[in-house]
Amino acid sequence: MLLIRCPWCGEREETEFHYGGQAHVAYPADPEALSDQEWAEYLFFRDNPKGAFTERWVHSSGCRRWFNAVRDTATSEFIVEGR
């Protein structure tokens, strides 16, 4: 069970959260201009590092707010949580 520090509520158990995957994946600014390859990148390809990973979590059973965190995917240690 991960212990996750919500930037607003403090440390809570993982079961209060849902995972949102990689952070900072912006919706394409000009979708109609995208090639098939670029659409594939946007829809299906995400970073998958062994080590520091910037990701999203939502505190579903708490304040219900989204936040970003940097977590080490080899150790599951949270390095940074940010509003």
């Binding site: 069970m1 991960l2 995972y19 990973f53 977590r71 995917t73 599951s76």
Partner: peptide, 13 residues
């Protein structure tokens, strides 16, 4: 488990 990991362990819940 929902999160990305290479740790070969998961959460007890």
């Amino acid at each position: 488990d929902s999160y990305n990991s290479y740790g070969q362990r998961g959460s007890v819940h």
